[in-house]
Amino acid sequence: MHRSRLSNLVIDCRVDDLASAAEFWSRALGKKIVTVDQDGDGKYAELDTAADEPLILLQKVEHESRVHLDIETDDVDAEAARLEALGARRIEFRHRWWVMEAPTGHRFCVVRRQRAKFGPHVNEWPA
């Protein structure tokens, strides 16, 4: 058995200045900025969300700007396999996560657990 749930809404930004993008989205969504440099590499900013909401991240990217979602799990490979069985396909393994593509053409990521606890909205899947 493994568990997963919707974890992150990621606003992919093809910009030079991620801090300016974070400022816009902070004001647009009414969410305070937690950090404009989450990992110390200038690629991720985070907006403040409640414990039962998905995290909202801004990611500095080279591709066109878009929004994607992340599914967090305690078993990245098992979750990727489960989603493949539903019709998704693996695109690329990056660092610690899978970039996937839904049958609809939407890209999304399967990532390791992002918060200490899954909380009440977790799904449990048989092995």
Rank of each mutant, 00 (worst) to 15 (best):
M1Q: 12
M1F: 08
H2S: 11
S4W: 15
S7E: 02
N8M: 09
V10C: 05
I11T: 05
D12M: 13
C13N: 08
C13R: 15
C13K: 15
R14I: 05
V15P: 00
V15F: 01
A19N: 14
S20I: 11
A21S: 12
A22Y: 05
A22G: 06
F24M: 02
R27T: 14
G30T: 04
K32C: 08
V34M: 07
D37A: 00
D37W: 01
G40S: 02
G40M: 04
G40H: 03
D41K: 15
Y44H: 14
L47C: 01
L47V: 02
A51S: 13
E53Q: 10
P54R: 07
L58S: 02
L58D: 03
L58G: 02
V61M: 03
E62S: 10
E62I: 03
H63L: 08
V67T: 14
V76I: 07
E79V: 05
L83Q: 12
L86F: 13
R89D: 08
R94T: 15
H95S: 14
R96H: 13
W97K: 15
W98Q: 05
W98V: 04
W98S: 05
V99M: 09
M100E: 01
E101I: 13
A102W: 14
P103H: 07
P103E: 04
G105N: 07
R107C: 10
R107S: 09
R107D: 10
V110L: 00
R113P: 06
Q114C: 12
K117V: 11
F118W: 00
F118P: 00
N123T: 14
N123I: 12
